[in-house]
């Protein structure tokens, strides 16, 4: 049975390195485990109730969803456009192609620090340049900080969406394209009725991956604003991080993570269906 032979590495790995941590993590949510109280008391659904009635959690959930949807849509559209643009043999392609990937090569935690340096009002390059053209702005002012974070996320992650869709374009049957060009189809028509349908799985894959990662956004925002002012830019990951590491409430943090997963899980098949058909039949 080749299907089990080929599947065995995954089963083996998942049995040890997935099942146990997931089980352990979800189980923690049912216990009152905290640093202040290391006795592991079974508390049933208490943690879940506490999280769900915490206005801080609900505010974080709302901000995270809005933020994630906004950046995902923009990044997927820009990434696709960029993939189409790069998908031809122009001079300097190799150099620029690699350069386009550099933003995702800087570790996010480190990139957060680099943004902090770049945007600093006293020693940062961006405010200095803006001042020379007469714009004295404070980039971190509370009324624009959300827009700033969205922009930074787009700068950071559009390359990711680009790479996935560009790679997809490379597997694109060029003969189909040539045939269409011979038929004299316009560029927009080719894009809409030939490229887009064939690329649909990979576009959905890029969109989906960006979305689930954006829903876990943490590093750059944590370094720049730590979720503030107040709770204005607190994402769910920041909320959970603080619950575990600043409050020492590991049980609550596990429960909050589990809730996030359970709420989002029903949406997963909607995307998965569009990325891959499950049962080995032709599309």
């Amino acid at each position: 049975m080749p299907k089990w032979v080929l599947g065995s590495p995954l089963i083996l790995f998942a049995a040890i390195f997935v099942a146990y941590p997931v089980y352990q993590g979800i189980q923690t949510g049912f216990y009152g485990l905290s640093l202040q109280n290391p006795e592991t008391l079974f508390t049933g659904l208490d943690n879940f109730g506490t999280v769900l009635t915490d206005p801080g959690f609900l505010a974080a959930a709302k901000f995270t969803v809005l933020f994630a949807v906004a950046v995902t849509v923009v990044e997927t559209v820009l990434g696709f456009g960029l993939a189409l643009l790069v998908n031809r043999d122009f001079p300097g392609k190799k150099v620029f192609f690699t350069m386009l990937l550099v933003p995702i090569m800087v570790a996010p935690a480190l990139l957060g620090v680099m943004f902090r340096l770049l945007l600093n009002g006293d020693i940062g390059l961006v405010p200095a340049v803006l001042r020379t053209v007469g714009l004295d702005v404070s980039l971190f002012a509370p009324n624009t900080v959300v827009q700033l974070l969205v922009l930074l996320d787009i700068l950071q992650w559009t390359p990711f969406a680009f790479l996935i869709m560009y790679a997809g374009l490379q597997s694109f049957p060029t003969d189909v394209l040539e045939a269409a060009q011979v038929d004299g189809a316009g560029r927009l028509r080719i894009l809409r009725s030939i490229i887009a349908p064939i690329m649909k799985p990979i576009i959905f894959a890029a969109l989906f991956l960006r979305l689930i990662d954006a829903l876990r956004t943490f590093d750059v925002i944590y370094v720049l604003t730590a979720g503030g002012p107040g709770t204005k830019t607190t994402t769910m990951s920041i909320y959970i991080y603080k619950t575990a590491f600043e409050s020492g409430q590991f049980g609550l943090a596990a429960a909050a993570s589990t809730i996030v997963m359970l709420v989002l899980l029903p949406f997963v098949p909607l995307f998965v269906r569009r990325i891959a058909n499950p049962d080995g039949k032709a599309r």
């Binding site: 902090r116 600093n120 009002g121 006293d122 020693i123 404070s138 980039l139 971190f140 002012a141 509370p142 900080v145 720049l224 604003t225 503030g228 002012p229």
Partner: peptide, 14 residues
């Protein structure tokens, strides 16, 4: 500075 809303030790030093 309005940037104070996101300032801590390093920004103060700068």
């Amino acid at each position: 500075s309005k940037d104070s809303s996101q300032a801590e030790f390093p920004e103060t030093q700068a």
